[in-house]
Amino acid sequence: MAQLSDITNAAIRREIEDFLERPEEIARTVELFARVSPLMQEIAAALIEGDNGAVDRLTVQALDQSVEALEIMDDGLIAGMGIVGIKFRESFIFVPEVLACARAMKAGMAHIEPILSAAGVEPIATVIMGTVKGDLHDIGKNLCIMMLRGAGFEVIDLGVDTSDDAFIEDVEKHCSPILGMSALLTTTMPNMGKTIEALIDADLRDEVQIMVGGAPVTQEFADDMGADGYGKDALDCVALAKRLAEAAG
């Protein structure tokens, strides 16, 4: 089993010591970072700092040293984002800090994405995300999107105030996608059910896995609406999307 001292980067060691509390998360994170190269650790640490300039520079440096794009994404960017998600869940950091990390992730992905798509690397699955009709809250949805992208999903962001037609149009366009709906208002929550009805009417319900979330949404409500899953936060959203992607085969 790997030890904390096996991690060369002091900043990463500090992050784990200061902010991780759950034993299984500590074990998993130590294992991960003990395995990856010092440069990947440095990329992860810069991402956790929200330092987009450093992530940009280090990503280019790694590519110049012939590190695989996929390795940079998995062992640098996604690995760093894992710690960010936990710190946010535990209120060690807040939305501005997470937005800065997302911006850093984007800076790295700007170099990685073209390489991956040229090489034909398949994303885990396509997720179509939108805030439901009548609702303009999107901070939580955007954090989910960032974590999903960070975990290797392709995400299509339909934005806020999304009509049934817009959801349907994108479900039709993609092969067995996951549909994620977010709602923050009790007045707009029922629109999740309406969209699911519309998908049934359009004969598309069986083509898509549906997940829902947002502060007022509960597992019970998700079941009532006929969704396939409910996630309570962004980390949960990623775990759920992985389960749904597997279920869809």
């Binding site: 929200g50 939305v95 800090e97 800065a100 901070i139 955007n142």
Partner: peptide, 11 residues
Amino acid sequence: GVEAFLLMSLD
């Protein structure tokens, strides 16, 4: 915009 404003507050 919320995100732009919050990022400015950090930057």
